[in-house]
Amino acid sequence: MLLTNPSQTVCKSYDLGSNPYKPELARIISIDPMVEDNYLFRFRFEDPDLNNSFQYRPGQFMELSVIGVGEAPISISSTPTRRGVIEMCIRRVGRVTNALYRLKPNDLIGLRGPFGNGFPVEEMKGHSLLIVAGGLGMVPLRSILLYALDNRQDYDRIILLYGTRYPDHLLFRSELEAMMYRSDVECHLIVEKPALSPDTPEWRGKFGLVTDLFDDVKDLDVKRSYALVVGPPIFYRFVLTKCLDMGFSKDHILMSLERRMECGIGKCGHCEIGSKKVCTDGPVFTYWDVINLPEMI
């Protein structure tokens, strides 16, 4: 006798009887070498019905299979408000992503998901969003940034603070630079050092650390705001202090964590930390969750 009746539990975007481990075929539509070893891949499901009905929340991730090589968890960089194409900015770093970089447009891969909680877009309605990204942290944050801009009336101020070490590493650079001229978003970019490669367009913006950009954020009502913070470990140490200094409560600071999410559905155990499973309880956690879990960052 089964104690739990699966039909009574929430099968999240999966119907009873469907297999959450099963990758669906998707085709690479384009590969855009944004910065070195960080290409933007565009995918479309082979099944047109699935491609049209596919929904997700900003901040969720998918399991990407390079057929014959294996699977890896990847954040979604596109917004669900722009249907039909899934964009993922993928860093060449491991076995699966190296194999992916050998593929060409029109090749087939496997995708399953979306998994994870994503950003609480409903709860954040009516609030200002302070989006703080360091390095690759822009990858999951681009989704919520574009989502909020596409639902502009739902959010108060939208502020982006994004920094990398070199301009060469700035993801979505032309798209973000264009945002600096928009009046409905406050976009602040910063780099530590001048460009490494002569091919990188000259940097005319600010030099410094992403924490320096906090001085540009004026008169933010932190009680009616959320801070969305994603970046490398060292970045968290300083940015979180800044957010707390500004007066953010700990459950209004959201961060997205990475771990080894193998199954994506809370079964395989690899991404568990403290009492949380990053794949199903996260990857988005509040700072309150994180300080209560010793291994979090």
């Binding site: 089964l2 099968c11 559905i265 199903t280």
Partner: peptide, 20 residues
């Protein structure tokens, strides 16, 4: 009983479930 909860909660694991 514990495996039942782990494999069937939130998402159903079709491999475990089919045999169970």
């Amino acid at each position: 009983k514990i495996l039942d909860v782990v494999f069937n909660r939130d998402y159903m694991d079709p491999y475990y479930y089919a045999r169970r």
